[in-house]
Write a protein that binds this DNA or RNA. Structure first.
Length: 800
RNA sequence: GCCGAAGUGGUGGAAUGGCAGACGCGGCGGACUCAAAAUCCGCUGUUGGCAACAACGUGCGGGUUCAAGUCCCGCCUUCGGCACCA
C-alpha cells in the first residue's frame, strides 16, 4: 500500500525545493524563449481571491509545460500598487499607503507561494517603487516632448465623495467607479495623452494579433472609427457671418437637412451671444444642461429638449436655403464638432426633435416608410437618393463620394474621419500615484524635468487626504511644490496632480525583461531576446482600458526608438469570473466569498488548482461548488493510489496513451483545461477497471498532470523513479501513427437512426463494412437506395 | 437602440455537420464494516414495457441535409459591453 498522502508536508517539501533552489529563476538563453504573462494583481488588503487563482493557473500550466518542453520561460509576477483603494484604506486605518502596500505585497507573495506558482520571483516588480516609476515618469516626459501630453481645460467628471476627477471610463453612467456616488461636472485644467493620434494604428495593429474575435470587436467599437465629412454652414450673425462646421457621416443627405443643432456649450453661442434675441431662454437652457448630470443627458429615448436660437439663421451650402438653428443637449460638444445638420427623415433623434418642434421632414432616401409617420433610419443605408438634384438615383456609397467631391469644389466641406475614443485624461488629484514630472515656470511655462533628475519621488506626506477644491494633496506640501525652473533657474512650482491608475501597468511587461536596469526602460539585449509577450492572460474588464493603453504606450515607445515591436502582446486569452455557489458575483455583502487559503488548508494547493481548472469552460463564468472540490480531492486520491497497481509492464491495449497525450497537449494549448482533465479521469477509470498500471503509463500521466498538480506529481515521480526529479524530464510527445486503434467500432444508421454497430479493422473500405452490416440482418427485405460511409466514423444506409 | 456571448439531464458542463449528455457533482443500489465514514463496483434524460426494445428529446417556429445541439431564415429569454457618437 502507498504511504498515505500528507499534502501539507509534501506541498511544503516541494515549495521549499522550488523556491530555495530557485528552480524557476534559472535562465538558459541558448534555448528558445517563451514569455507568458498574467495581469499583475492589485495588492489589496483582502488578499488573494479565487478569481486570481483562475486567472493565474492557466498561464501557470502553460509555463510549466513550456519548461518541460525545453523552453526558456519568463513567467513573472509583480504588483500594480498605486491607486485609490490602498489610499482610502490607509486613510481609514491611519497608516501610510507605503506601509499598507508593503504589508499587502508580503501577504500576496506568501499566498502565491502556498499555491505553488512557478513565477520568476527574482523579477518581482512594484509600480510604487521609485526605481520603477522613474520610468513611468520617463515615458510621460517623452510624450510631453513629442506633444502627446498636454494640459487642457475641460469639463471633467468630479466625484464629490472621493474628491477626485475621474476619467470617462471611470464614471460610466454618471456613477463613480470607486464609491458609487453621482458624478458632477466641473471645469478643470488637466493633463491628457493624445491616444487619438494612435487610433488608426491601434485598429490596424489588431489584424495580426491572436486575440479572441470578441476582444478585437470590443476594441474596435471602443475606438469607434467613423468616416464622414465636415460641412460648413454659413450662419448669419447680425451683419456678419459665422462658418459653422458640422460633422456628418451622411453628407449625401444634405438636401434633407431642415435645421441645425449646436451643443449648449458650443462657442458660437459665446462668440455671438449679442445677436441672440432670446438671450434669457438660451442662457436658462445652457444653465440647465450644465446642471444635468451626464447620466441623464445620455439617457436614450427620453424627450428631446432644446431652444430655437432667435436672431440667427443658417444657410444650407448646397441648396442655399435658409434653415433655423437650435441648441439642444442631445448634441455633445465632445464628439464631432459639437454641431450637427439634422436630417429628420432619416435619423431617429432628429425625427423626434422635428416632431416636437414642428419642423419639416424631407425624404431624401427612397423607402416604403412614410417619413412623416416614422423615420427611415438607414444607418449603413440601403436605398436610392431622391429629392437631391446632385445625387438623385445614386445609391449611398457613390452618393456620398459625389457629394463630398461637390462640397470640395465649392469649398464648403471635405471628408473627415472621427473616433469615439477620447484622449486619455491622464491625471488624478490624489496622493498615491506617480507625480507628474513637469515644472511650471512663470517665464518658461510648462517645463519638463531633466531626465537625469528622475525619479521625482513622492514626498512623504503625513496628511494625504484629498482637498475639497479638486486639487491634489501634494499641493499642501510647499517645500516639495516649490522648486526652480530647470531652464532659467527662477522660482517655479511642480505639477501637483499624479498619474492615473493605468499608468504603471502600461509598460510593466517591458520591465520584467530587465527589472534592475537604471539606464534604460528595457535593456536592449534583454529586449532583443524576450521581445514580445507570447501569451497574455487577463480579464475581459481590461480589454478597453489597460489593453488599449498599454498597446498605445508600446507603439509610442517604438516610435521613439526605445523598442522595436509595434505590438506588445502576440496572443491574448481571458478567464471567466468565478461566481459564488449561489451563481451570483462574489461579494462580501452577499457572504458568498471563498477564500483560497481555506481551500488550501483543508485540501491542499493541488486540489484547488485542479478544481479551478476543471470547473468549466475557461472563458465563461462558473459558480464555485464545495461538492466539486470534494470531487477533485477524490480524483487526486485515486491518482495517488495508482502506485498500488504499479507493474513494470502489462497489457495496455485498452488505453491509447498517444491519443491521451495529444488530447491533453492540444487542450492545454487551447485553454480547454476542463476537457484535458476529464480525459485523464477517463484514463484513470480505464486503469482502475483493469487493476494494473504500467510504469510508462504512470510516468506519462504524472508528466501530463504535472503543470496542473505539480506537488503530488513531483512526489510520485520521485518515489516511482528512484529519486528522479520530474521538472528535469521532458513533456510527453505522441506518435501520430499510433493515434488510431487497430480496430474501430462503427455505428450503423438506417435512415439516420442508429440500429446497430460493427467492428472492423481501421481504414476499412465501404464494401468490407457493408459485408459486416449485412450480417446484422437489419436490411432484410429492404431495398438499399443509398449508402453514406465516413471512414472509421459512421455508416448510414438509406433504404425502403 | 447598437455590438458581443450564451440557452443541452436533478446539477457544473462535453460533443472538426456523423452514436447527444464525455467527465465531474448529486441520487439510487451493491461490496467491505458490528456500524458509520472512507474506498471499490454497478445503475442513473423522459415516457411506455418484466424485458429485448420503441417513441420522444439540445429555448421557440420554419428550412437545408443521407445525417443538425452544430448550418440558414424568423422569433423569445438571459448575461456582458457600448450608448442622443451625428
Amino acid at each position: 500500500m502507498a504511504k498515505e498522502y500528507n499534502f501539507k508536508a509534501v506541498e511544503k517539501k516541494w515549495q521549499d525545493y522550488w523556491y530555495n533552489e530557485k528552480v524557476f529563476e534559472k535562465y538558459d538563453y541558448s534555448k528558445p524563449k517563451f514569455y507568458g504573462l498574467i495581469e499583475f494583481p492589485y495588492p489589496s488588503g483582502a488578499g488573494l481571491h479565487v478569481g486570481h487563482i483562475r486567472a493565474f493557473s492557466s498561464m501557470e500550466v502553460i509555463a510549466r509545460k513550456k519548461r518541460l518542453e525545453g523552453y526558456n520561460v519568463l513567467f513573472p509576477i509583480g504588483y500594480d500598487a498605486f491607486g485609490l483603494p490602498t489610499e482610502n484604506y490607509a486613510m481609514q486605518t491611519k497608516q501610510h499607503p507605503r506601509l499598507v502596500t508593503d504589508k499587502n505585497i508580503v501577504k500576496f507573495e506568501e499566498q502565491l507561494k502556498k499555491i505553488g506558482y512557478s513565477f520568476c520571483w527574482d523579477r518581482t516588480i512594484d509600480t510604487t517603487q521609485p526605481d520603477y516609476y522613474k520610468w513611468t515618469q520617463w515615458v510621460f516626459l517623452q510624450m510631453f516632448k513629442k506633444g502627446l501630453a498636454y494640459k487642457s481645460t475641460t469639463q471633467v467628471n468630479f466625484c464629490p465623495v472621493c474628491k477626485v476627477v475621474l476619467a470617462n471610463e471611470e464614471s460610466q453612467g454618471g456613477i463613480c467607479d470607486r464609491c458609487g456616488a453621482e458624478v458632477v461636472q466641473k471645469e478643470k485644467d488637466v493633463w491628457f495623452l493624445r491616444i487619438r493620434k494612435y487610433a488608426d494604428r491601434l485598429l490596424s495593429g489588431l489584424e495580426g494579433l491572436q486575440f479572441p474575435e470578441r476582444i478585437k470587436i470590443e476594441q474596435q467599437n471602443w475606438i469607434g472609427k467613423s468616416t464622414g465629412a465636415d460641412v460648413t454652414f454659413e450662419v448669419k450673425v447680425g451683419d456678419g457671418k459665422y462658418p459653422l462646421v458640422v460633422y456628418t457621416t451622411r453628407p449625401d443627405t444634405i438636401y434633407g437637412a431642415t435645421f441645425l443643432v449646436v451643443s449648449p456649450e458650443h462657442p458660437l453661442l459665446k462668440e455671438h451671444f449679442d445677436v441672440v434675441e432670446n438671450k434669457e431662454e438660451v442662457t436658462a437652457y445652457q444653465e440647465q444642461a450644465k446642471l444635468k448630470k451626464e447620466f441623464d443627458r445620455v439617457q436614450m429615448n427620453k424627450d428631446k429638449t432644446g431652444i430655437k436660437i432667435e436672431g440667427m439663421v443658417a444657410i444650407n451650402p448646397i441648396t442655399g436655403a435658409e434653415i433655423p438653428l437650435f441648441t439642444a443637449d442631445y448634441v455633445m460638444m465632445n464628439y464631432g464638432t459639437g454641431a450637427i445638420m439634422a436630417v429628420p427623415a432619416h435619423d431617429k433623434r432628429d425625427w423626434d426633435f422635428a416632431k416636437k418642434f414642428n419642423l419639416p421632414i424631407v425624404e431624401v432616401i427612397k423607402s416604403d416608410v412614410d417619413v412623416q409617420v416614422e423615420p427611415y433610419c438607414a444607418k449603413e443605408g440601403a436605398g436610392i437618393m431622391v429629392n437631391s438634384p446632385l445625387v438623385n438615383g445614386l445609391t449611398v456609397k457613390p452618393a456620398i463620394k459625389k457629394m463630398i467631391e461637390e462640397m470640395e469644389k465649392l469649398g464648403v466641406g471635405h471628408a473627415k474621419t472621427d473616433y469615439k475614443m477620447k484622449d486619455w485624461a491622464f491625471n488624478r488629484q490624489r496622493y498615491w500615484g506617480e507625480p507628474i514630472p513637469i515644472i511650471n515656470c512663470p517665464h518658461c511655462g510648462q517645463v519638463p524635468m531633466k531626465e537625469e533628475d528622475l525619479p521625482l519621488v513622492l514626498p512623504d506626506l503625513e496628511d494625504f487626504s484629498p482637498t475639497d477644491d479638486a486639487s491634489s494633496p501634494l499641493s499642501k506640501c510647499t517645500e516639495w511644490v516649490n522648486t526652480t525652473c530647470p531652464i532659467c533657474g527662477a522660482p517655479a512650482t511642480r505639477e501637483t496632480d499624479t498619474m492615473p491608475q493605468w499608468a504603471g501597468s502600461s509598460w510593466y511587461f517591458l520591465r520584467y525583461m530587465s527589472p534592475n536596469d537604471n539606464e534604460h526602460i528595457v535593456t536592449p539585449e534583454a529586449y532583443k531576446y524576450w521581445g514580445q509577450v507570447d501569451w497574455y492572460n487577463g480579464g475581459m474588464e481590461h480589454v478597453t482600458r489597460h489593453l488599449i493603453y498599454s498597446r498605445f504606450w508600446n507603439q509610442f515607445l517604438k516610435d521613439i526608438g526605445a523598442i522595436t515591436h509595434d505590438e506588445p502582446y502576440l496572443r491574448r486569452s481571458t478567464q471567466g469570473l468565478i461566481l459564488g455557489s449561489d451563481g451570483e458575483k462574489m461579494s462580501k455583502s452577499k457572504g458568498n466569498v471563498v477564500n483560497p487559503d481555506d481551500v488550501v488548508n483543508a485540501y491542499g494547493a493541488d486540489v484547488l488548482r485542479l478544481f479551478i481548472l476543471f470547473i468549466g469552460d475557461y472563458e465563461k463564468p462558473a459558480p464555485w461548488s464545495s461538492d466539486g472540490i470534494k470531487g477533485s480531492a477524490r480524483f487526486m486520491n485515486r491518482f495517488w493510489n495508482l502506485q498500488d497497481m504499479l507493474v513494470d509492464e502489462c497489457d495496455t491495449s485498452d488505453l491509447n496513451l498517444d491519443a491521451l497525450i495529444k488530447k491533453v497537449n492540444d487542450d492545454y494549448e487551447a485553454c480547454k483545461f476542463n476537457t484535458a482533465i476529464a480525459f485523464v479521469m477517463t484514463a484513470l477509470n480505464t486503469i482502475y477497471a483493469r487493476g494494473k498500471v504500467s510504469k510508462k503509463e504512470l510516468n506519462t500521466i504524472c508528466l501530463l498532470l504535472n503543470p496542473v498538480v505539480p506537488h503530488m506529481t513531483s512526489e510520485m515521480y520521485e518515489i516511482v523513479n528512484d529519486g528522479a526529479k520530474i521538472n528535469e524530464q521532458k513533456f510527453p510527445v505522441y506518435d501520430p501513427a499510433k493515434l488510431i486503434a487497430d480496430v474501430v467500432e462503427i455505428p450503423v444508421q438506417i435512415m439516420g437512426k442508429v440500429r446497430g454497430r460493427v467492428t472492423v479493422p481501421a481504414g476499412s473500405q465501404e464494401d468490407a463494412v457493408m459485408e459486416k452490416v449485412k450480417e446484422l440482418g437489419l436490411l432484410d427485405g429492404k431495398q438499399i437506395i443509398k449508402v453514406i460511409y465516413v471512414k472509421d466514423k459512421i455508416i448510414n444506409i438509406v433504404a425502403k
